[in-house]
């Protein structure tokens, strides 16, 4: 099936209430040359079904102008993202997932620079 989704505030058949609320701003807990560890608090509003996982997205000017999904099926509120470039500034956001779909993104993390080689 193919579904149009023109604007999130008009013509949506999904009750936004059914989706989880966005997680709180992710906090950077550790940084290395190729990895960053994050932790975040879930939103109190789970929506119409329990939150089953999280999606983590990363932004870096060296990777272009879109957010890349760097982890999904994350089951707990903490994760280490690996495979990052050294000496590079990254931003992170987190979305919660339930049976109805994805939450809005969390606020952006503090920017973090991976360690130099």
């Amino acid at each position: 099936t193919v579904k149009d989704s023109a604007d999130s505030s008009a013509g949506q058949t999904t009750e936004p209430f059914q989706l989880p609320g966005p997680p709180h701003k992710p906090i950077v807990t550790d940084v290395s040359k190729n990895s960053v560890s994050l932790t975040w608090q879930p939103n109190a509003h789970e929506g119409g079904a329990a939150v089953t996982s999280y999606i983590i997205e990363a932004f870096s000017q060296s990777a272009g102008s879109t957010w890349q999904t760097v982890a999904d099926m994350v089951k707990i509120e903490t994760h280490t993202i690996t495979g990052l470039l050294p000496n590079t500034i990254y931003l992170f956001i987190v979305r919660a997932v339930n049976a109805y779909g994805l939450s809005d993104p969390s606020p952006i993390s503090e920017p973090v620079r991976t360690q130099d080689v």
Binding site: S5, Q18, L102
Partner: peptide, 11 residues
Amino acid sequence: QMHYCQANTVC
């Protein structure tokens, strides 16, 4: 009833 795709997309 699903909302895996967000604003301004075609699922």
